[in-house]
Design a protein around this nucleic acid. Structure first.
Lengths: 346, 346
DNA sequence: CCGGCAAATGAAACCGCTTTCAGTCTACGC
DNA sequence: GCGTAGACTGAAAGCGGTTTCATTTGCCGG
């Protein structure tokens, strides 16, 4: 409510009480250059002066204007995080980890879900503003990556391996987890009675898990027939539908299912319960992800744990590394999974 | 570290191919002022000129530098969204709605979970950068709001009613939802056999729901005794513990529970199942929130639906409104709830 | 006592854009 | 033919910082 620059008359009470580096400089009887140095490289200024400036800064509550700062330094300490969709426990865990890590590293997180109906305008702003971008890609829609590459923005990709194309990558190590789950099922079930019920065939995770499923069965001498592998969507409905379909081929007995994720697994469990199929006696089910659902459902779901928070954190930490050292060597981090054996499989 | 303007020799291939307004101006043989006008107020420039400039802009792929822009206009089109914690279905829905709405309005979303271990430094940047802030406050830790007020940042508060203190607010309309749920339970259960099992006593939602619970019982002529209302935490464990505790007072029969949220309700259902208490015959349970869990659990959970995505969207839309018109009248939006009757209560 | 070097500081350029202000040009009325 | 309003346009002043470069000062050895 005051503080006018050049020649002006105060009309409104002024909604900009923002104190600038200039105000600090005047108050501390130094130049703005010195104030700037106090904040960015105190070793360049005499201790006595620095102290005086600091006192003023604190007293008047000075905060550097990030726009002016960004204009010079070309960095905002804001990271972009683009997800295919923000939904469910899964993504919230991911974000949680990313948020914690970026906070730890002194960055902010700009989130954005699938920009199907993108305005290029909007996107432009974000691209110019953020220091780096983490993109989760679960199906072959690599447009964001293309955009990021063109804009030379430091980028990290999740879920799709692009490290041999020069982009840092964070992956969930699907294969060992799947293998472990299948081997667990094989302890009680013959390979020809094992089924993989996945999500969308386009989905990278589903693809990897299906492949690992096949490999695991092949390794024990059984090449799965097409009917043993089914694709649908990551929903309980699909799990129910699959089981009901399966029922038409006769009663279920000595059967094992490796589901593409926990939701599918839960759908299967529910449909089995509705039909009076005993779990785990007649039907053994293993899920994937270990969302909280897995422990809440009865019987408790055996599932492959995916440390989503760690994935988010790893993505951010990789991204920060690249932002701060553009020439760092390209890395690919694989997050290990872990089989959580519960009641649905034994 | 490279790319100097003026007299320069190219050392590195230059990692900043960024084309500036100046480049466009030269290429289109106009002044930068005209380019700026073409982008911001085309009516001020001759159609022929505008067309030529637009062509160049498109051809060279010019995007205004947001820092320079922000320095002049003092807006970033970035909104801050601060949550107590990013966790579970609940918050991901909230974010989902907020994200969609802010995208629709041409803003970006900067998210941040509880800054317990805050660095003031970090916070400073965000505060200077964002155009407005949405804060969810679930317990009496109003520090963020205080900060926002001091910084004169447009602010919207979620979950705590501050509209009479001059801050736009978005609330979940807990009372009618609770009343509806209690009345539903009263159809089958006597008021003295009804229990409220809430989350933390500090939590605003729990407080409101507990109060509405009391009011609903009082309205039918029964003042609840202290034992009918219990506080704990928003977890299944607390639900289980509560039920087990309750069991010590004898077998459960003709009893109804109004839980503070779905997770507590699920804990109660599980503990009941473990003890062979029949739901809904002996025990009727109503939850709150209607997370996806409610439909996935068996018996399906009767629960009060809270449209979290709508809450997030409403917060953003209110915030945008205030950002763009600081003098708009203070508003308080109450999001209606809806009782979803399923199998756990009838 | 003086030259010279290092430490401390300030002046000023610059980052890329918006916006005011003044100037040029055209077309029109008289 | 001339004055002038109105339409376009450009020069230039910031916005609030960072950083280079030059200047001033203090201190040392010779």
């Amino acid at each position: 409510m005051n503080r006018k620059a050049g020649p002006s008359k105060s009309d409104v009470p002024a909604s900009r009480p923002a104190v600038s580096i200039h105000d600090v400089a005047v108050e501390a009887r130094v130049s703005i250059a010195t104030v700037s140095r106090v904040m960015n490289n105190p070793s360049l200024v005499a201790p006595k002066t620095a102290e005086r400036v600091m006192e003023v800064i604190k007293r008047v509550g000075y905060t550097p204007n990030p726009f002016a700062q960004g204009l010079m330094t070309r960095e905002s300490r804001v990271l972009g995080f683009a997800l295919p969709d923000i939904h469910g426990e899964f993504y919230s865990e991911l974000l949680r980890g990313a948020d914690a890590e970026s906070r730890r590293q002194g960055y902010h997180l700009l989130v954005s879900s699938e920009p199907r109906s993108e305005e290029p305008d909007l996107r432009g702003l974000a691209f110019g503003l953020i220091d780096g971008l983490a993109v989760m890609i679960t199906n072959p829609d690599a447009e964001m990556v293309r955009l990021a590459r063109e804009s030379k923005l430091p980028t990290v990709v999740l879920d799709l391996d692009m490290h041999d194309r020069g982009i840092d990558t964070v992956l969930v190590d699907n294969e060992p987890g799947t293998r472990e789950g299948v081997l667990h099922l094989l302890e009680t079930t013959r390979p020809e009675n094992l089924y993989f019920v996945g999500g969308s065939e386009d989905n990278f995770d589903t693809q990897h898990r299906a492949r690992a499923f096949t490999a695991a069965l092949t390794a024990v001498g059984h090449t799965p027939i097409p009917g043993q592998i089914a694709y649908g969507s990551y929903t309980p409905e699909w799990g129910r539908d699959w089981l009901n379909l399966h029922f038409q081929r006769g009663p279920i007995r000595n059967t094992g299912v490796f589901a593409g994720n926990d939701e599918i697994a839960i759908g299967i469990i529910q449909a089995a319960a509705d039909r009076g199929t005993s779990i785990p006696h007649d039907l053994r089910v293993v899920g994937f992800d270990d969302t909280r659902l897995a422990q809440l459902v009865r019987p408790r779901l055996t599932t492959v744990r995916v440390p989503m928070a760690d994935v988010g954190a790893a993505a951010v930490s990789l991204l920060v590394r690249r932002v701060e050292d553009p020439d760092a060597e390209i890395k690919c981090i694989r997050m290990p999974t872990k089989l959580m054996i519960r009641d649905s499989s034994r």
